[in-house]
């Protein structure tokens, strides 16, 4: 089991963003979260590596167990948690450094500076992110010169470099063109061999294409989660069906 989410409620001050969410996220599979804007899907995914801790007045109750440990436990090392549970955001956010240094960054802050190790990790990570062939001759070029799609794959390589177990994708293709989107989708499908992937997306076809499981959130509640094939062909819940067929929203 990857994650076990038990009775999770989340609040921004007085406003409740997640309501009594209960489900399990499978290891080494892609789980997609869909729902309207403001339904709580981004809040949810950001709970999985405690990114919401940085938001003022945010609080969460209930339990999120990852590999059996409660990730909201006071004794937990949050930096280590975020190393194990990496995240890729909506807009590519490479550091204003070289391609090489972007990928090596996570290792350097862990105190790993040996060139041999860094070279190996940078190459492996860029290969896993399907970017190596496009950048191998210009690793010292500034990352911001890459195209949007390449920058997003660089961010994925940067996330992979620290050897996470889980990668969270928050709308990873919303700023990308269709070809770059297709590359990221292929990459997500390839990544599940080694990683647990959770993706938040507004694009239902994308969820249908890349994920093994899909959860539908509405007004902070998890309405339905099931194998993706079932959700998009014969969902059990009428609200899910109305949402994915565009009958409300």
């Amino acid at each position: 089991m990857g994650f076990k989410i038990k009775d999770v409620n989340a609040f921004y001050g007085e406003k409740q963003a997640l309501m009594n969410v209960n489900f399990e996220i499978q290891k080494k599979a892609v789980t997609a979260i869909i729902g309207h804007s403001g339904c709580g899907k981004s809040t949810f995914i950001r709970c999985l590596n405690r990114m919401n801790d940085l938001v003022p007045l945010f609080r969460v109750d209930g339990e999120i167990l990852y590999s059996g440990m409660n990730i909201y436990s006071k004794s937990l090392d949050v930096t280590d948690l975020r190393r194990r549970i990496g995240m890729v955001f909506q807009k590519p956010n490479p550091f204003p450094k070289s391609i090489y240094e972007n990928v090596a960054y996570g290792l350097r802050i862990q105190g790993i500076n040996k060139k041999g190790i860094l070279d190996k990790v940078v190459e492996e990570s860029l290969k896993k992110a399907a970017l190596w062939d496009e950048v191998k001759d210009r690793l010292q070029s500034i990352a911001n010169a890459l195209s949007g799609g390449q920058q997003q794959r660089l961010c994925i390589a940067r996330a992979i470099a620290t050897e996470p177990e889980v990668i969270l994708f928050d709308e990873p293709c919303s700023a990308l063109d269709p070809i770059a989107t297709a590359k990221i989708e292929d990459l997500i499908t390839a990544l599940k061999k080694d990683y647990t992937v959770v993706i938040v997306t507004h694009n239902m076809q994308q969820a249908a294409r890349v994920s093994d499981f899909t959860g539908f959130f509405m007004l902070g509640e998890l309405i339905e989660i099931d194998v993706t094939r079932k959700i998009f062909t014969a969902p059990s819940n009428k609200m899910t069906e109305d949402y994915i067929t565009g009958r409300f929203g």
Binding site: Q205, A208, F232, T233, A234, P235, T240, E241, I244, T245
Partner: peptide, 9 residues
């Protein structure tokens, strides 16, 4: 239109 669920069926 990428129909889904009942529409696709």
């Amino acid at each position: 239109q990428q129909p889904m669920a009942i529409d696709l069926r």
